[in-house]
Design a protein around this nucleic acid. Sequence first.
RNA 1: GGGCGGUUAGCUCAGCUGGUCAGAGCACCUGCCUUACAAGCAGGGGGUCCACGGUUCGAGCCCGUGACCGCCCACCA
Length: 869
Amino acid sequence: MSLQDRSRFEPSEVEPRITAAWLDAGLGSPDVAAAQDGAYSIAIPPPNVTGALHMGHALNGAIQDTLVRWHRMHGQQAKWILGTDHAGIATQTQVEKLLVSEGSGRTEIGRDAFTERVWEWRAQYGGTIVEQFRRLGASCDYADERFTLDVRYVTAVLEVFVRLYDKGLIYRDHYMVNWDPGSRSAISDLEVEDREVTDRLYEIAYPLSDGSGEVIVATVRPETMLADTAVAVNPEDERYTHLVGRTVTLPLVGRELEIIADDYVKTDFGTGCLKITPGHDPNDFEIGRRHGLDELSVIGEDGRMTDAAGPQYAGLGVEEAQAKVVAALREQGLLRSEEPYVHTVPFSHRSGSRIEPLISLQWFMRMDELAAPARQVVADGQVRIHPESQRRRYDAWLAEIRPWCISRQLWWGHQIPVWYRGDGPDQETYAGTSAPAGDGWERDPDVLDTWFSSALWPFATLGWPDETPELDAFYPTDVMSTARDILFLWVARMVMMGLEFTGDVPFRDVYVHSVIQAPDGRRMSKSLGTGIDPLMLIEGGPRPPVFTQGGDFPAYGADAVRFGLLAMSSTQDVRFSEEKVAQGQALGNKLFNATRFVVGKISADTVAAARPATVEDRWILSRLQAVKADSARRIAQFDLSKLALGLYDFVYGELCDWYLELIKGRAFDDDLAATLLHVLRETVALVHPVMPFVTEDLWTELPGHDGRLLAASVLPAADDAQTDADAEARIAALIEAVTVVRAWRNDAGVPAGAMLDVRLAATGYDETIAALARLARLAVSEDGAVDVGAAAAIVVPGGTVEVLASGAFDPAEAQRKAADQIRELEREITRAEGKLANAGFVDKAPEAVVGAERDKLARLQAELAQLQG
RNA sequence: GGGCGGUUAGCUCAGCUGGUCAGAGCACCUGCCUUACAAGCAGGGGGUCCACGGUUCGAGCCCGUGACCGCCCACCA
């Protein structure tokens, strides 16, 4: 359909066509050979392979695509590295559920069949999110998609593991881990979330072995006392110092426990005596290691009491065991108190189960050695984190980094490349990227934490450990754009791994973007029902209940959603605002109609060129150059909100409201046509990174279109030579004058269509008088040519517009308005005079400020004189 | 328990190193189908810038205290 037959932009009709054109042209696939003349790359935070696009993806997609398109349009070979993450626990959980629904299960079918099943699942659902990124207009390199379990990627992961193992940074140890009974796996500290729960706090008497008394300990986990191996007090605590070194008899068990002294114990909390259970409490574990205590376990990986707990407890769940222990203590008269107790305890982020701290044999990675250089590169600016406030968080976390438990008791993931032979103390261990020679070797069944492989993302996706042309051209990447929640989980680890294995940072800038909350301020979440599906916004669909307004979303289209998300983003969390999306839609429509107007006015063989013939031509070229420069600055500062809103202001407030209105009074000669086309082309191109679809569509409608994609075109950078202060001043005065006269007309009751007879008594309008007359609907008499007195004066920059008596306006209203203005002026004059009469101000304020105040006073007084005259 | 951020028009948010900074979009009111766009155009009303102290000639902007909201980190039994 031709442009002139459409009066509004219809995204649903245009977007599929444009998407296909970009894909056909290989827009996202850069020329690796040409990249040495300038390359730009971003590695996408890989979404979960079976996930669906949520608001966070959409925002981050809009941000990254805007950056990538901007740099591509400034002559760089831009690669947005695309791929998905195997997401160990999340994916395995989904497939396990599926199996259960089929009456089967993971253990029933075995490891090989299970992983086979996950691959099938991935084949079926894995493409969704990539397709959704396309819908958003994301110009990723679709021809070069990665997956963290691709053969080449696996090679990189195993290589990294083996090198770190050989270096001694990866080791196996019995250590306290966060055991998730839900997924039957250890999880890392970062996968744990604290929740507030109400437990019961018990005080229990432990009798001294010699019968001379007792000590009282407090605990919320009485069942763990079965694994107690000591009682600790603070070495400074005078109440107990005499007991240190003596022993108590552990109730129910009868074991002798030594009373030890450790600084960890607080003197002002509880009873000052702490039962020590190294096997089931992380702090006690540390204390136990300091004092060489035995590490007993009475709770197993299934969350039930083990045989070590004794025959009356073995096999019970921890809650049952707790009840039984408490009952037994009460019976023996050793339970001294019991009260409700609110505190926070760790839960698994994934399964939702309460974490059971357990000692188990796991693989760990020592981080301190890698953390130091990762802190350094941020400290010295090799990696810049935006906003600045996030840098402190990053550094604080790295400063106190602890060993990372990297093994997971799952089947879906990178199986740890370690083989064992034999048992007991003589067991042989082999770590390598392939199985060792010889018989009897058995591979470690565990897989690596998903974040282990994610940490290699920026270089493993480019072919590392091979020295590929892609790695050479696009590493380090330029920007890592991400939400705050994975700054430690992922970003910091990428820096560490990047430095260790490539000798260079993985990216130069980290942009930490907003988290978009639901309109009511709650977190957007599926389970809360507060989520908003970006595709519903793009395609239209029912509003979720978090909106006060009901009904369906209109089909806003991808451009509007992108604009809206960028416009609402900032460096802090923001609420979702549908109005901003609507604003984006309005902008797209505005551009569409502006193009329709221009194309309808100029001939098809017009060649775009800046050939200013009038002051407004010089003005718009000056403004265009300014908005280009501003946009470049905002891109560099990651201020995407200001970028989007700045473009909106230019298109609406300058190009359409004023320039296009100004030229309507002119003949469309060749110079004007060339200039008009030039301005429109540049504007459309400038908006493209934010709103790629509508701009790409309009691009094809412009005279001179040579079939090349806008997305693949290069936009000339801002040119200072176009700045024109004189034109800016003259048009600013014109705009002010038109606005003031229009307001006056409204107040004075002048009919909208009526011409007003006036005489211009102001300077500075020699080039704009005709425009002023047309836009403000004035019939301007030559100064002095008509010998009638003015009935009213409208103050404009440079003088007044004298309104001649006529039937077109109500003199009483005009009088009233003038009186209001005079009152207002007098108020301001009084204020300015007062300020200037203040000796403190005149003496201490800077010269320029005082001068400005004097000028302001003079101006106000002149205005007042004109109104009264 | 620490740390960070926020509190500006009915709503969502801008306001740089203190001096036209009291703004934008949406909503609202009035008037316009002025042939690019009524998903439009023109004009307008509306805020003791959370509270109280302080610094300063001058404070949304700096300092202190407090209130409320949000986030992050943390091992207090």
